[in-house]
Design a protein around this nucleic acid. Structure first.
Lengths: 169, 169
DNA sequence: AATAATAGTTATATTTGCCAACTATTTTAT
DNA sequence: ATAAAATAGTTGGCAAATATAACTATTATT
C-alpha cells in the first residue's frame, strides 16, 4: 500500500481539522519575523472586537476560559494587550490592544487575509459564497447537537457545581 | 459589547478549526460508552486502510510521526491494533486492527457517519458537492505554499540533519 | 436576604506538539 | 560494490494545549 493515498475518505470534522493544521502551518511560516509565534487568531479577533471581554473571545473562538486566562496573561506580559475591569460590571475584564499590539496585529491580519485571498484565488465567487454558507450551517447545526460542552460554559457549570456540592456534603 | 457576536469575521483556517472542535465535541459525546475516548479519527482511517504503515496515517491525517508512535503504543496497549513488521521492507510496520479493534471501530465509523449525515441533512446535494470540492482545493493549495513543515517530513529532514551535523563538527 | 448565575482565576494532571538525535533498513549514486 | 542519502520508526525532553475541579468576586433573580 502507498503511504500517500490521494484522498482518503474522511469525516467533515477531520477534513476541517486537517485544513486548519495546514492553514496555521502556512500562517506561522509567513509570520516568522514577528516577536510572537502563537495566538494569531485571538489577535485577529481582537482587531475587529477590541475591548471585548474574555468570555466573548472564548465563545467566538471555541476556547476554554481557563486556557484564555493564561493566553491573556501572556499577551499582557509581551505588551500586546491590557486587561481593564469594566466599571459597569466589575466581573468583566475588557481586553484592549496596546499601541504595540495594534501595530503587530495589523501584520497578522494582513497575513491571514493574504492566505485567504491566495487559496481562494482559483475558486469562483459563487462557490466561495456557497462554501462559506455551508461552513456556517454546519457549525450552527453542531451547536444544537448534544456535546461534551467544552467551550460554551453557561448553565451546566452551575448544574455540575450543585451536584458536586451535594455529594461532598 | 455582547459576548456572543452572531458571526465574527474569521479566516477560513480559524473557521475550520472551530468546526472541527465542535465536531469532535459532539463525536466524543456520542461515543461516551466506548472504552476509548480518543484517536477516533485514526481508527476511522484504519477502518478503510487497515494494514497501512504509520507514515501513511501521519500523511493522511496531518499528524506528527513522533506523536503517532505514542498513539499506536496506546492502541496496542488497549488491544485495538497490532504492529507488524513488513517482511518486504523491514523499516515499515503495518498497523492492523485486532478483532476487538474492528468491532469498536465499527461503532466509531457509524458515529462519524451519523454526525455527517445529520449536519448535512438540510444542505442540498449540489451544495455538498461544491463544499467538499472547495475543501479539497483549499487543502491542496495550502500544501503548495511555504509552511513550517510539520507533518510532511520527507526530504527536509535530511537537509536539516546535514546542516546540524556540519555545525556540530 | 438568600440563591443562582456569570466572569474570571488557580491548581493540577494529562495529552499533545515539536524538536533533535538516534537505529535499522533500503535506495541511489559513484 | 561501496558510500551516501533517504525512509520508517523510535526515544527523550520541553513547551504548550486540554480538561477538570474548586475557588473568589460580582451581579441578577426570587
Amino acid at each position: 500500500m502507498s503511504t500517500t493515498t490521494n484522498y482518503a475518505k474522511l469525516s467533515v470534522g477531520t477534513k476541517a481539522l486537517i485544513l486548519s493544521k495546514l492553514y496555521y502551518s502556512v500562517l506561522s511560516k509567513s509570520l516568522e519575523s514577528l516577536d510572537i509565534e502563537r495566538y494569531y487568531s485571538i489577535l485577529f479577533f481582537l482587531n475587529d472586537n477590541n475591548g471585548c471581554n474574555q468570555q466573548c473571545i472564548c465563545n467566538n473562538l471555541a476556547i476554554d476560559k481557563t486556557a484564555m486566562v493564561k493566553v491573556i496573561d501572556y499577551l499582557i506580559k509581551v505588551g500586546f494587550v491590557d486587561r481593564n475591569v469594566n466599571p459597569d460590571d466589575r466581573r468583566e475584564h475588557f481586553i484592549v490592544l496596546t499601541k504595540k499590539g495594534l501595530k503587530q496585529t495589523g501584520e497578522i491580519v494582513k497575513a491571514f487575509e493574504d492566505i485567504d485571498r491566495e487559496i481562494f484565488s482559483l475558486i469562483s465567487k459563487e462557490e466561495q459564497v456557497i462554501f462559506n454558507k455551508v461552513m456556517c450551517q454546519l457549525s450552527s447545526k453542531l451547536k444544537e447537537l448534544p456535546a461534551n460542552d467544552l467551550f460554551f460554559n453557561y448553565k451546566q457549570t452551575a448544574k455540575k457545581r450543585k451536584k458536586v456540592t451535594a455529594s461532598k456534603v
